[in-house]
Amino acid sequence: MATPLVVSEVAKSFTMHLRGGTLLPVIQDVNFSVKAGECAVLGGPSGAGKSSILKMLFGNYSVDSGQILVNHEGRVIDLATADPRTVIQVRRNTIGYVSQFLRVVPRVSALDIVAEPLTARGTSIEAARARAEELLSALNLPRELWLLPPATFSGGEQQRVNIARGFITDHPILLLDEPTASLDAKNREVVIGMIEEKKKAGVALLGIFHDEDVRERVADRIIDVSGFSARKAA
């Protein structure tokens, strides 16, 4: 089977037009790949561009140069040049993403937010909700919150909704941006367990974990991002 995710010579900079066109290089010459069943962790100091890399891999940030090759339904797709429609399909079926913060949709319940990635792929609403309930109870989210929109939830509660949403599908690639940052020890354990399960299922995981304890337990490999820093070279 092809390597699910290959990043090759990727470079990224921001042009700050509102600051007189200042060019802000972020990273360059990023090269790595993630194998199926492996959890790679991006390491390096804050501001080294770890989050930017994840966002590029999700198609959220554009890429200046280089390739992001994703094995999407048996075909290799370069996300760096893919059109929006392809990116949306890759997100629906291939790359999952757990962001740091939950983007809340007014009036949609926590349960439906978690279930949505499944219904978007054609699972019946009942089946999707049943799976969402399993995940939310595994993550110890109080049952009385399930039918409420998460706008008023605490940071930790929102993050658990976010994790459940990210983990509900069987995407072959999963990107994790500090999924355990605002969780207590008990729920951290749950998330670590969920990551282990994903690995066993052959999912390629790439994450950012500031919590050293978590990092050491889940990481098969650390990719040091400071080596890609564009500022050092500039």
Partner: peptide, 18 residues
Amino acid sequence: HGLTDRVLDDPREPYTQL
């Protein structure tokens, strides 16, 4: 012109950034 979250989170053009 592009994916909505891409344009909003990583705007390229001066006007879009504004």
